[in-house]
Design a protein around this nucleic acid. Structure first.
Lengths: 206, 206
DNA sequence: GTCTATAACGAGATAGAC
DNA sequence: GTCTATCTCGTTATAGAC
């Protein structure tokens, strides 16, 4: 999906990049057009309105992100390891979550079709995380609360990183949360984990 | 500042409301004009550019929010109680954090003057939260990480609430986090705390 | 200081040729 | 299917009278 060939694919591809960089609202069809290199008419042939383009592009982004997240969350490691692996995945903190950021995008929140795509992303992640906490023998309601906390750490960490212009803020939030998990009833065995700010080589999404 | 009288104050007041509802980028000077009831020329007399208006309005919002937060964080209760009181403060989860949401607003991130105001808000909160964790005899770096985690819980909780259209998502994230704090070395004494989603009467900000 | 025009530009979308 | 040209409207901002 990165170097597509059809006009339609190039449009969706360009839209995904621009939406990730600036959000849906501030991205004009014209900008997508320019970035994709196709002509005016082609855009409106494939996507009669901006809404249609947005649903296609955000949908593709959600599918990608969800697939990657599930590879970590559904691995065959022990529950706690899967969880921590997910929390500590390298992320482009300063860019923000491509999907989480859309919750502040009024163009998205006001568009039911778009919002549903965003909702589905988080509902599926919460379900997977809740299941992981259940496997650690927590009652259902506690597992659900902790799943919310874990996902909030990631989304909030992105916000803090962007607010302070410090990519280490996301890493710090994750460390703070994982530290609390580790001190619990049955602690994980972990190699010594140096603290303090710094992020090595981030790459992707929640 | 709620029912101001001068044209300038009415403009700032209207801008704060609109920024909170839709963000800075999507809010036009014209909309502020209409909401405030003043004339075109008055706006541009007091605020030559949209940037000037935004700095004034966002600055006022940050000052308000910071003052309210500090009243909770600087009270004379024990450290952990202040922390939990802050985390559990009633919040309008579906509206999102008036300030945190701005980190997804490209108009804000691209404007250094505006961004600095947002940064200052989070830096001050992180400092206060770190101090609280220090008072619980944690090493400085751990205290700092937990402060990041605590603030991320709030900001991430807002994101989850908006994404799922469920105000209970923020409350759930807070419960999940506080539950981890409670299970720690020296647990808090607390009345029985029923779990499950539901938010009674929200009101304000982080 | 505050007002009513109005200029200059970009947004979203359409028309119609190829 | 893809293109260029064009329409309409809202945005940011300025001009200049009161």
């Amino acid at each position: 999906m990165s170097s597509a060939t059809s006009a339609r694919d190039r449009l969706v591809d360009a839209a995904q990049d621009l939406f990730a960089a600036q959000g849906v609202g501030p991205t004009s069809p014209r900008a997508v057009l320019a970035a994709s290199g196709v002509g005016q008419g082609s855009l409106y042939h494939h996507f009669p309105t901006k809404h249609d383009l947005a649903v296609a592009a955000v949908g593709a982004t959600v599918d990608d992100a969800l697939a990657r997240a599930m590879r970590t969350l559904d691995s065959d490691s022990p529950a706690v390891e899967r969880l921590v692996a997910y929390l500590e995945r390298p992320r482009e903190a300063l860019a923000g979550c491509k999907i989480g950021r859309l919750t502040a995008d009024q163009a998205v929140m006001d568009d039911d079709g778009l919002h549903d795509v965003v909702t589905a992303y988080f509902v599926r992640l919460l379900r997977a995380l809740t299941q992981i906490f259940r496997e650690t023998d927590l009652p259902d309601d506690v597992a659900r609360d902790r799943a919310h906390a874990a996902l909030a750490i990631i989304q909030g960490g992105y916000v803090l990183a962007r607010a302070t212009r410090d990519p280490g803020a996301l890493a710090a939030a994750v460390r703070g949360f994982v530290g609390l998990l580790d001190q619990g009833p049955q602690a994980r065995n972990e190699p010594d984990r140096p603290s303090q700010h710094s992020t090595p080589t981030p790459k992707e999404n929640p």
